[in-house]
Amino acid sequence: MQCGIARSWLQSRRDTALSASQQRELDQHVVNCGECAALSRDVRLVESWLEQAPVEDPAANFEWRLKLRLAQVERDSRDLALPARRTIWRPWLQFGGAAAIAALVVVGVGMQVLRSGPAVAPSGGMAFRSAAHGGIVQPLRDAGPGSPSFVGPPVPAAYSYFISSTDSSSSALDSARTPNTFEAR
């Protein structure tokens, strides 16, 4: 038997079991060859040492930390499932909220108008008569010199206000601005 084959068999013994006849042939060669005998011994020693390769333990809190991570992962996956509901929900919230606020403004301003007297028509700008019309303000035609002629649809009392560039004595509201208000100078 040649040393090359013997060395190959010795080194691959862990992977491929030799047949009985191959093992006998190898053993006979090793007895008669000092170099292969040394290699055979080295291979056995190395194998025995590798069997003793230490298995290190991670830190004592490894499992506890892993549990925390898994719990966080589960929380995150639940949160990720929410946005589909949020994106459906939020526009309704916004619409509903805006509607509720507008309704409150209408009620509040309406109550204010009902308590106050008829609006005073100034010399310029557009004036609105309110209150006496059941809370509906009718824009006045030709409210004064320089004012634009405008006859628009009845304006709910909540949106009534007077804007005048000259008259500062108006008692009309000018703070409520909504998409339905009219402006004129």
């Binding site: 298995v55 290190e56 490894f62």
Partner: peptide
């Protein structure tokens, strides 16, 4: 599996903190 996996990773990374992080 934690010990053998950690040992394997420690032998590749040679850093206990990194090995634990990857095992986790």
């Amino acid at each position: 599996h934690k010990a053998r996996l950690y040992s394997y990773l420690l032998r590749l990374l040679r850093d206990p903190t990194e090995a634990e992080e990857v095992a986790q």
